[in-house]
Nucleic acid binder design. Structure first.
Lengths: 336, 336
DNA sequence: CTGAAAGCGCTTACAG
DNA sequence: CTGAAAGCGCTTACAG
């Protein structure tokens, strides 16, 4: 019913093997034969069956990704859709396809990963998030399946990964604030066990150190949730100790909470910096300065690393560091 | 190397055919045989190769979706990621997979659709957006490929689709405003050739009619872009004619522009309603009332329609209408 | 440079 | 209820 390689072979007066070689653009085939075969394919409107190719090749040229389904950030933070776009752009360029599935929790994710791998649907996996002792990572390693993780993994040697330089990102934000004359700077971040939080906190401390400012542990807050409420409360608590002249945060939502405290108290003159540069940032009052982590590029390079691994491109690195960029707005005194 | 149906057959002392039937849970196989085969599968950790199954079945149990890659709304409006989530939830429930690709423009989309279909990668397609004279739709129809569109298509008879009742949505918003005492209500919407715009405008007009308010065409504005800027300018222009007491819009971004005009002029007391209930809405000053279109449910039912079609479930409908919901906030006088 | 044959890992009509 | 055989539409080592 559907036109196959056989029909093309018949029309072009060659064998199916030859047609197959023409499709693969094998150098062994003479130009003339190629031309004939192309013509036959043209007139029959032949399209290779990707499934059959995959079966014979033992490769689907498909990448699998897993999306959280209950993460608040899924909708509020464009990280995921931006990363997906970057992945798609690179994959398309190389003729790869992408499958996605939403997962409710870590076990769910593990099952999806196992299914993707075992059923041979995908050639490799891109993990958009990684936990401590991530079950998916252990599984993928153990089963020797190609994968890449967005965010620095626990062992950076034997894993492909892409990430921002979170230390550097926060380090330069704090430098920037100190250069503006601040010397009493608060830090409100996520749970300390996350690598991102740790790295950013280190960047914060280092900057203070370099400038001879003593780190005051009471100015360092940790919230359990990336939410406005948590940010609000952390800021309140921070201020029972001391009122800073500036506050850095590790997420825009936290920063919104900080802004709220400031709005409630007209006397406060505190500069604030968020993280992730969500669309909401420019709509705050005042518009929030925020660090853009370039999620699209993270996705793009994740796909690149994985595909190069799959195609055994030699001499490639095992990670990429994607630059961040502070977007200055009124919350740090810059009108847009 | 990888364990196949043959090994399982050998271990269970049956033929490969039998193993295959057990996998498909054929009723023809005796319980005892099944048990043996299951045990063999268990000890060998057998997983069916989905690609081989797909080839033999001529079905991949995979759905394809196409995402715009330059649409501003891709990042600002969670519509896409929400719809994708709904699609994924239903697909997972039915054991289907999903592929996505980003597309730059309509021709790009057409090529992706053709590739998905011709290469036999997907069993059907979900279109997240549809244009007038949509090339993808014509192609899918002509090639007799299963597909469903989110948004009401031009011909509703021979197409599967899911949509909100946009007429009803706007009709009740305007009713609501009139009930609150407004009788001078502006409308700012997207290009009139879009079905959504037309439907919502009709709802607006009908509500005025019903309440005996004359429709004033000069209170109806059409913007070319769903952007704050366009909304701002449209509002300015509307007001050169007359200052309304309320304004309805067909997109939150437009509404933000309207809010901006109001903020610039302290004397104005105008209520505003947006559309899509983007995360930004609750962060406006004042927080913006907006119509939630329930994108996740749109995706869910799109997947349901398509999968039922693929599985030839009988007596199913060819479309679903997903309810909308006005989320009231301060921009219509309601504190959250 | 090209072809015949075996194989990728399943499914299923046919026969018993 | 179960098996042998052909087939899904490609690829590729082998032979020439």
């Amino acid at each position: 019913m559907n036109v196959t390689i056989k029909e093309v072979a018949k029309l072009a007066n060659v064998s199916p093997s030859t047609v197959s070689r023409v499709i693969a653009d094998s150098p062994k085939i003479s130009e003339e034969t190629k031309k004939n075969v192309y013509k036959a394919m043209e007139t029959l409107k032949y399209r290779p069956n990707a499934i059959a190719r995959s079966l014979a090749n033992r490769s689907t040229r498909t990448l699998g990704i897993i999306l959280p389904s209950n993460d608040e950030n899924l909708f509020n933070n464009p990280f995921f859709i931006q990363a997906m776009k970057g992945i798609s752009i690179y994959a398309q360029k190389k003729g790869y396809y992408i499958m996605y599935t939403h997962s409710g929790n870590e076990n769910d994710s593990l099952n999806i990963v196992m299914d993707y791998i075992n059923s041979k649907w995908v050639d490799g996996i891109i993990l958009l998030t990684a936990m401590e002792n991530d079950k998916c990572i252990s599984y993928l390693k153990k089963s020797n399946s190609p994968f890449v993780v967005i965010g620095r993994p626990e062992s950076t040697q034997d894993t492909l990964w892409v990430d921002n330089d979170n230390f550097q990102a926060m380090y330069s934000v704090v430098n920037y604030l100190i250069d503006k004359g601040h010397n009493s700077i608060g830090f409100i971040g996520g749970p300390h066990q996350y690598n991102v939080t740790k790295d950013r906190l280190d960047g914060y401390k280092r900057s203070l150190d370099i400038h001879g400012i003593t780190v005051d542990e009471k100015m360092i807050m940790s919230v359990t949730d990336f939410s406005e409420t948590c940010g609000y409360e952390a800021m309140k608590e921070l201020m029972t100790h001391k009122t800073p002249t500036a506050v850095v945060t590790t997420d825009d939502l936290i920063a919104y909470g900080v802004l709220k405290v400031i709005k409630e108290n007209k006397d406060l003159d505190i500069e604030v910096v968020g993280f992730n540069n969500t669309p909401l940032a420019s709509y705050q009052t005042p518009p929030l300065s925020s660090v853009d982590i370039n999620a699209e590029k993270l996705g793009y390079y994740a796909a690149k690393l994985l595909i190069e691994k799959l195609e055994k491109v030699e001499g490639t690195v095992n990670h990429y560091i994607v630059e961040t960029k502070l977007i200055e707005r009124e919350s740090t005194g810059i009108a847009e």
